[in-house]
Write a protein that binds this DNA or RNA. Structure first.
Length: 867
RNA sequence: GCCGCUGUGGUGAAAUUGGUAUACACGCAACACUCAAAAUGUUGAGGGGGAAACCCCGUGUCGGUUCGAGUCCGACCAGCGGCACCA
């Protein structure tokens, strides 16, 4: 009797049907009960496999989120079977604007909202059968977690790596908070899309620029994709150039100008200064129209801000009335204020010439003389450059005319000679600049880690009079006063807990909502006992994620119920055996992360910040490695079937819970890994999922063919295919080529289906190969064979290269075109093969009447006859 | 503008790294089973020509290197990503 079932399920006589619901829930319970996913307490050869932890938004997961998690799950299951001790944890990045905005919108306290959302996320993840060790779960909003975030910040503060700044920073008028450069996209707020304003504000800033060179250099140690490394290189933006020092005529001021394209230095005819350059007012002292110039400059700054700091088409400027005396004998150069000069790059002052597009445009507009010294090889073009019809900027291929020493030389070839020339004559010195800016680290929002600092007026006075300074009020190198009056909360008083408030909406005044809570703000100064106030800004959402990978390792000492790291805090060092150093052996056991998976959108945010914090902790000798993430793969997005990003806004979200209910977690897992190359963005297609389901059903049906009897005739073709597949699946998982691993498993399954009977050994091997992808169904089938121990704990099958047969087919080519296939017999010599082939009618027909010039034979592959 | 990545059937994509282009899967068509459908199985399929054997063309475009190029080199085109008034 046939029965109409759902349109994909099969019904099979004489065999239990493949009921994914029953199987999947059954095995999850067993795994949980037997604690098979518990991390080894003392790892042997370790493999740390990490997902970027999510921030638990209220929307829950869509079908695209688990792709990376499935991949790490497959990878870590494979590594486990290969005998590694694995660490594969999961946690929650729950501070920051997304969680807070969700909470405000839904009128729930962020803490409650986070708890609720974490539950939803966790349930959705658990359904997929991941091998996470939930004993190591972390949550950045847990005070037991963020006390360490605060501690690391304080250690940076105490070493002068955190400083108070009043410089204008990016301000998002809609999120009502200051932002770092990394939080912008195209001059707009990365979160809400509002146009950013520049606003002078009191901020805490981390000196990430101190690490710029190492962040750049150490990229070479990493096995990351080129595109991500390149993004970081662009972001750090190193350029090597020269600094020229020039006196200003009629004053005792000297200015410095930076140039990375100094090859045509002999062409400089004027100087521009940024309209917001701090030196400008001083420069204008004694100039009659000083006020006019300053007003004009202020307008340029305003215009720039209104244009969202993007390139403006029109260059504008005004003459300052001052001249520099050029160190390289270009004479007296007029100084102009120019709209395109940036105060915060290089020195903010530039020597200009005919060999820069903007300078050229500017000079033409204001009729400033130009004198080109660099020309293209093409004489017609060179003439145009000479006549100032076109601007020539190619410092590589251009030919120099001046100075005489370099006449006729190609600029790109003699860059080093020019550097030496400038250095030798003391005309300029080398200087490296970076586009990377220090990290604006405070937010005027509620939902973040409180910055554990206190401001004390009395201590400030004492700091300013030298005697009262404490160590961290002094810059190591210069002795200069640093953050006077700011006192660190003592380690033993950490965490500084986020107080409960009634209104956690941003004030918009540039003050954090915490500023209104007197009981939080007012405190005794930990240093002098006088009246003091707490810092009320909070940390950015990136703080907790900058070291979380290490927190998973720290959890080894505790159990689930005692909370994360509920040990006393005392600095980084083990003076009292209570600092971060007590975890050193755990860090040594597990760090660095061996395989890190996440979104490419973090290339210039989290992935830079975490490397910076890691390097700091490396310098503090807490971590033993220079880098946190040795290998990184970015997950290609799963797009909606309509080709757009999956988003609630477009109403095109596909919920994994529904997919799992109808098709099963195993099918979803296989499908997402089979879709295409891991790093590709691919549109979801529920239709296509049927192939993955059919594959699992085929594997299910194969159990009928299994026999315990020793098969008399060993099919050598099958044997070869099996070993080939073992080899391929292992290599493919290693390289994250999951799609081809699955296709080779499909080929093997097809071959097995054609067998009368299958030996138990072969079937077991096949199950093992599939188990990382489809853990539930393979566990069930494995148990059906009588295995008592989980397939998860079984060792990965070995392959024998001897058993992989070489192809016996030889492609016959005439002049490189394939014309026939030749079936070789074993033990044929090259000579035999050639003779046989030249005798084939299909070959004869081509060579008839022509001369065979050459025969190329590639063993076992190709024989090419050249006519 | 600069830098990086990618371009292969109707679709997602393979290709041992210079050696039989289109594996595997979806979809499609025909057939088998069925009263019928579903499910499953078998077969077919890059384009063009031909009754057929077979032939010609074909991996974004145009050139080059090579016995042989999807793969290497040069120029260009398109898409995606990063940076961008960065001197």
């Amino acid at each position: 009797m046939n029965k109409l079932r759902s349109n994909y399920a099969i019904f099979y006589y004489g065999m239990k049907e493949y009921n994914h619901k029953k199987i999947e829930s059954k095995w999850k319970k067993v795994w949980d009960k037997k604690k098979i996913f518990k991390t080894d307490a003392s790892p042997k050869e370790k493999c740390y496999v990490l997902d970027m932890f999510p921030y638990p938004s209220g929307d829950g997961l869509h079908v695209g989120h688990p792709k990376g998690y499935i991949a790490t799950d497959v990878y870590s299951r494979y590594k486990k079977a290969k005998g590694f001790s694995i660490l594969h944890p999961m946690g929650w990045d729950a501070f920051g604007l997304p969680a807070e905005n969700f909470a405000i919108k839904n009128k729930i306290h962020p803490e409650i909202a986070v708890k609720k959302n974490v539950n939803t996320f966790k349930k959705q993840l658990e359904v997929l059968g991941f091998n996470y060790d939930w004993n190591r779960e972390i949550n950045t909003t847990d005070p037991e977690y963020y006390k360490w975030t605060q501690l690391i910040f304080l250690e940076m503060f105490k070493r002068g790596l955190a400083y108070e700044s009043f410089e204008p920073i990016n301000w998002c008028p809609s999120c009502k908070t200051g932002l770092a450069n990394e939080d912008l996209e195209d001059g707009k707020c990365e979160r809400c899309g509002s146009v950013i304003e520049k606003k002078p504000m009191r901020q805490w800033v981390l000196k990430i620029t101190d690490y710029a060179e190492r962040l750049l250099e150490d990229l070479n140690l990493l096995n990351w994709s080129d595109s991500i490394k390149e993004s970081q290189r662009n972001w750090i933006g190193k350029s090597e150039g020269m600094i020229f020092t020039s006196p200003i005529k009629g004053t005792d001021i000297k200015i410095e100008t930076f140039s990375a394209h100094f090859e045509a230095f002999a062409a400089d005819t004027f100087v521009v200064i940024a309209p917001d350059h701090p030196l400008l007012p001083k420069l204008l002292e004694g100039i009659p129209n000083k006020k006019e110039i300053l007003d004009f400059s202020a307008r340029l700054v305003k215009n720039r801000s209104e244009a969202g700091f993007k390139e403006q088409k029109e260059v504008e400027g005004i003459f300052t009335g001052r001249y520099t005396i050029d160190p390289v004998e270009n004479g007296e150069l007029p100084i102009w204020v120019a709209s395109y000069a940036l105060a915060d790059y290089g020195t903010g002052i530039v020597k200009c010439s005919a060999h820069d597009e903007r300078d050229f445009k500017f000079a033409k507009k204001y009729k400033i003389p130009l004198k080109p010294v660099l020309f293209p090889a093409d004489s017609v073009l060179a003439e145009k450059v000479r006549n100032l019809e076109i601007c020539f900027t190619d410092m590589k291929s251009g030919v120099l005319k001046n100075p005489k020493e370099f006449d006729g030389k190609v600029a790109g070839n003699i860059r080093n000679e020019i550097i030496k020339y400038l250095e030798k004559n003391k005309l300029a010195k080398r200087k490296t600049t970076y586009k990377l800016r220090d990290w604006v680290f405070s937010r005027q929002r509620y939902w973040g880690e409180p910055i554990p600092l206190v401001f004390c007026v009395q201590c400030k006075k004492r700091a300013e009079t030298q005697e009262g300074r404490i160590e961290y009020h002094k810059n190591f190198n210069t002795g200069e006063l640093l953050n006077p009056g700011w006192i660190a909360i003592p380690d033993e008083d950490l965490p500084v807990k986020l107080p409960k408030v009634k209104s956690y909406e941003p004030s918009g005044t540039g003050e954090s909502p915490l500023a209104n809570i007197a009981s939080f703000v007012n405190i005794k100064c930990p240093k002098c006992g006088g009246k003091a106030q707490r810092e009320t800004n909070t940390m950015p959402q990136w703080a907790g994620s900058s070291w979380y990978y290490a927190a998973y390792a720290m959890k080894s000492k505790t159990t689930r119920s005692t909370g994360l790291l509920s040990t006393p805090v005392n600095g980084l060092k083990a003076k009292t055996e209570k600092g971060l150093e007590q975890f050193k052996s755990a860090f040594e056991s597990w760090l660095p992360v061996d395989m890190y998976i996440g979104g490419a959108e973090h290339a210039t945010r989290h992935l830079i910040y975490a490397r910076f914090w890691h390097k700091f902790l490396y310098d503090m000798k807490i971590f033993a490695t220079k880098e946190p993430f040795m290998r990184f793969k970015n997950v290609g997005l799963i797009m909606a079937p309509d080709g757009r990003k999956m988003s609630k806004r477009f109403g095109n979200v596909i919920n994994p819970d529904e997919i799992v209910a109808t098709w099963g977690a195993d099918t979803l897992r296989v499908y997402e890994m089979f879709m295409g190359p891991f790093e590709n963005a691919i549109a979801w297609d529920t239709q296509n999922m049927i192939g993955s389901r059919r594959f699992l059903e085929k594997i299910w049906r194969l159990q009928e063919k299994v026999t315990n009897k020793k098969l008399e005739v060993i099919n050598s073709d099958l044997q070869s295919l099996l070993h080939q597949t073992i080899k391929k699946v292992g290599e493919d998982i290693e390289n994250f080529n999951f799609n081809t691993a699955i296709s080779s498993l499909m080929i093997l399954a097809g071959a097995l289906e054609n067998q009368e009977k299958i030996s138990k050994e072969i079937y077991e091997t096949v199950l093992q190969l599939i188990s990382p992808f489809a853990p539930h169904i393979t566990e069930e089938l494995w148990a059906n064979l009588g295995n008592k121990k989980s397939i998860y704990l079984s060792p990965w099958p070995m392959f024998d290269s001897q058993k992989i047969k070489q192809s016996s087919k030889l492609a016959i080519q005439i002049n490189g075109k394939t014309r026939d296939i030749f079936e070789m017999e074993s033990e044929m010599s090259e000579k035999d093969i050639k003779e046989k082939i030249l005798d084939l009618p299909s070959v004869k027909k081509w060579i008839e009447g022509k001369e065979v010039k050459r025969i190329i034979y590639v063993k076992g592959k190709i024989l090419n006859i050249v006519l």
